[in-house]
Simulated assay, not measured.
Amino acid sequence: MDRRFLTAASLAVLYLLAAPAHALNTEEVEPQTLRDYAVTLTAHAGNFQWQQLWKNTRSAGYFNQQSPSHFTVPMSSVPDIVSAALTRATSVRPFAATRAAYRYDFATNVGVVQKVAVTAVCIDVDWRSLPNGTAVDDAEKMKNVSLLLATPCP
């Protein structure tokens, strides 16, 4: 047999063994487990993950005071309220198979939605890069999870 074929086949088998079998299906995970994942993600997300969240949120207009839906807290407070919402989420809603929306209600207004004051923050997270069965405290695996969007929510 051709040696190059064996090498390519061996590499293909190794790749398949190393790749996660399935992405985390948020619709099949208990809400408390999704909350626990979010706590670990918040503690271990890298700068790039947070930068992507801020970029997406800015692009969607949630930092623009002229937009009908935006944050009203000082910009310097937004990272803290988003982190608090992820670590203390009062509700988690799975959607699109690998995503989850985390919500936390604060005691004071944090933004407006369609010009109505709101106290809640919602964060969308894409867990598709996290393999099913990952331990909730696996900090290393959190480095590829996508923080998608932070919004004030009704």
Results as ranks from 00 to 15, higher is better:
Val136Arg: 06
Pro131Met: 03
Phe71Tyr: 05
Asn109Thr: 14
Tyr62Ala: 03
His22Glu: 13
Leu16Asn: 10
His22Arg: 15
Trp50Ile: 10
Ala18Phe: 04
Ala100His: 05
Asn109Gly: 07
Arg35Trp: 08
Leu11Thr: 12
Val29Thr: 14
Ala135Glu: 03
Ala45Trp: 01
Arg88Asn: 14
Pro131Asn: 03
Leu17Trp: 03
Met75Gln: 09
Arg128Trp: 02
Asn64Arg: 09
Ala150Lys: 07
Leu41Ile: 09
Ala23Leu: 03
Val116Met: 07
Ala18Cys: 09
Ala107Cys: 00
Ser129Trp: 00
Asn144Asp: 13
Leu148Pro: 02
Ala150Val: 11
Ser146Trp: 04
Met1Glu: 03
Val113Leu: 04
Ser77Asp: 13
Tyr15Glu: 09
Thr42Pro: 04
Asn132Lys: 03
His44Ala: 12
Pro131Thr: 02
Leu34Ala: 13
Ala43Cys: 00
Val82Met: 03
Pro94Phe: 02
Tyr37Cys: 15
Pro79Asp: 07
Phe48Thr: 10
Arg35Val: 08
Ala96Phe: 06
Pro152Tyr: 03
Asp105Phe: 00
Pro74Met: 12
Phe48Lys: 11
Gly46Tyr: 00
Phe5Glu: 12
Ala18Gln: 07
Ala96Val: 06
Leu149Cys: 09
Gly133Arg: 00
Tyr37Ser: 12
Asn56His: 12
Leu130Thr: 10
Ser129Leu: 04
Gln49Asn: 03
Tyr102Gln: 09
Ala85Leu: 11
Val116Ala: 09
Thr57Trp: 00
Ser83Lys: 11
Val78Pro: 03
Cys122Ile: 11
Arg103Asp: 01
Thr57Glu: 00
Asn56Cys: 08
Val125Arg: 05
Trp50His: 06
Gln32Phe: 11
Thr33Ser: 07
Ser129Gly: 11
Val78Asn: 01
Arg35Cys: 10
Asn47Asp: 05
Leu34Asp: 08
Pro131Leu: 05
Leu6Asn: 09
Tyr15Asp: 12
Glu30Ser: 13
Gly46Trp: 00
Phe106Ser: 14
Leu11Arg: 15
Ala117Thr: 12
Gln65Ser: 14
Ile123Cys: 07
Ala38Val: 15
Pro31His: 06
Val82Ile: 13
Ser129Glu: 08
Ala96Ser: 15
Ile81Trp: 07
Arg99Thr: 07
Gln49Ala: 15
Val39Ile: 15
Ala120Ser: 15
Asn144Tyr: 06
Cys153Asp: 13
Asn109Met: 02
Pro31Leu: 10
Asn109Pro: 05
Tyr104Trp: 04
Ser146Lys: 11
Met75Cys: 00
Ile123Val: 15
Met142Phe: 04
Lys55Glu: 09
Val110Phe: 00
Asp36Leu: 13
Ala139Asn: 01
Thr119Asn: 15
Thr98Ile: 04
His44Ser: 13
Leu6Ala: 09
Arg103Glu: 02
Val113Glu: 03
Val145Asp: 06
Phe71Pro: 10
Ser146Leu: 15
Asn132Phe: 00
Asp105Thr: 14
Leu130Val: 11
Glu28Gln: 14
Thr42Cys: 12
Ala60Ile: 07
Pro94Lys: 04
Phe63Gln: 02
Gln32Val: 14
Cys122Ala: 15
Ala96Leu: 10
Met75Ser: 06
Phe106Asn: 11
Asn56Pro: 06
Gln32Thr: 15
Asp126Val: 11
Ala43Trp: 00
Gly61Met: 10
Gly46Phe: 05
Thr90Met: 13
His44Gly: 02
Asp2Tyr: 08
Ser129Cys: 04
Arg35Asn: 09
Asp124Leu: 14
Ala97Met: 11
Tyr102Thr: 14
Ser67Phe: 02
